[in-house]
Each structure stands twice: as C-alpha cells, then as structure tokens.
C-alpha cells in the first residue's frame, strides 16, 4: 500500500540547512497498523507529512497505492490527499469558521461527491458521539470533542489510508483513550491502512508494527 525508498528531506532556514530525514526505506502492506515512534526532533511528523502528500521530499520515492507521489505538483497532491489519505493532526485543525458538521462535510464538497454526503457526515458524527453538537463551532467544543470531529472528517471519503500525527498528544488520558478507541473502531469498520506517529507507549502497543526513528533514520523496528 505504501512503499518508501531513499527518502530524504532537508529544509533551508534563513541561517542554515537542516537535514530532517536522511534516507528512509520501508513498505507497509494494505490494512496494516503502523506506529512511528522516536524522540522529539527525530523527523516523525515530517515523515508522516511526506507520506500523506502534505509536503514534498528533497529526494527519494513514495508510492501510495501504486502511485508515485514524490514528483507531483501541489494540485495533483491535493487530489491524491482527497482520494487516498485521511489525516488527523495533533492540534485538530478544524476550520474555525465552519460548524462541526460542515467541517466533516467539507472533503465531500471539495471532491464534488455531495450525494448522500449529509447522511454520511451525520452518521460519522453519531459514531464519534457528537451528533447533537453538530451545529457547534470548534471554539465551542473541548479539545477531545474537536479531535473526534477531526476523526469523523478524516474518514468522510472512506480513504484507503489514514494517517494521524500524535492524535492524542494534546488530550488528557481519558479523552485520549476515547479518541484512540474511536480511531481503532473506525479503522476496523472502514478497513483502512493506518499509520500514526506517537509518543504514547499505550497507543503504540495497539499497532501491528512499530518503527522507531532517530536523527532522521530508522533506528529500529518491531
């Protein structure tokens, strides 16, 4: 499902050049749940962003579902993201000016797949236990609630791959557990390939495979 080879990412800041990823190779088969771990600054989030097509690599190749996304321009990447990848951010990233339901509905509207979208959005909100809060704006929701809306949004278009960047990192343990349970349940229900970045041992324990990053290279795998 996901194949990565020779992946590097460097960025140029006003003063110096930072090599974040220095050669990554791995393969994730369909339906697998992979957790990426590593200390702060090891390049986990950058790797995830590259896999999701949110960013472009400096060199190397990424195949998503057989399609090479490493050389695509911004607009083609957007199409890939919309069709193949659902993404959950650590800081939720809901659009503040849209209600919960509108946030969930947005991917379908952008893809032009509006038939039955309303029902699915409401079903997903029901699934994360927020159907009665569907008209609330993000600012009126707690962190855990916002992340549940973000989860519903990520699953809206039934993406074959779901990526999550520290999805429970900003939440307390009770809320974190709730979000994790929902994530696993939705994953099982939608049969997606799941890649997530986490610090949490508890979260990683649920994964079928654990990759550890250190200083921009894979330091270990179990």
């Amino acid at each position: 499902m996901i194949a990565v080879s020779g992946l590097t990412k460097s960025i140029q800041t006003p003063t110096h050049r930072v090599d974040i990823l220095r050669g990554i190779d791995f393969h994730v088969p369909k339906g697998q749940f992979v957790a990426i771990r590593g200390p702060s600054g090891s390049g986990k989030s950058t790797l995830l962003g590259l896999l999701a097509g949110l960013d472009t690599p400096t060199s190397g190749k990424i195949l998503l579902d057989g399609e090479d996304i490493s050389g695509l321009d911004e607009d083609r990447l957007a199409v890939v993201r919309g069709r193949k990848v659902g993404f959950v951010f650590q800081s939720y990233q809901l659009i503040p000016t849209l209600t919960a339901e509108e946030n969930v509905l947005l991917p379908a509207e952008l893809a032009g797949e509006t038939a039955g979208a309303g029902e699915r959005a409401r079903a997903l909100l029901d699934g994360v236990g927020l159907l009665d809060r569907r008209d609330h704006y993000p600012v009126q929701l707690s962190g855990g609630e916002q992340q549940r809306v973000a989860l519903a949004r990520a699953f809206m278009l039934r993406p074959p791959i779901l990526m999550a960047d520290e999805p429970t990192g900003n939440l307390d343990s009770a809320n974190g557990r709730h979000v994790l349970e929902l994530l696993l349940a939705l994953n099982a229900q939608e049969k997606t390939t799941l890649v997530l970045v986490t610090h949490s041992a508890e979260l990683a324990a649920h994964a079928g495979r654990r990759i550890t990053l250190q200083d921009g290279v894979i330091a270990g795998e179990e």
């Binding site: 999701a52 911004e74 199409v79 919309g82 659902g86 993404f87 990233q93 809901l94 503040p96 952008l110």
Partner: peptide, 16 residues
C-alpha cells in the same frame, strides 16, 4: 492561511 492549509490537507486544490 490556516484554514486554507487545512482545506488543502483534506484534498482541496488551489483552483477550488
């Protein structure tokens, strides 16, 4: 800007 980045991350193209 943030809203635009979010829209892009969930599949919106610049033209949209």
């Amino acid at each position: 800007m943030d809203a635009i980045a979010v829209m892009k991350s969930i599949g919106a193209r610049s033209a949209q």
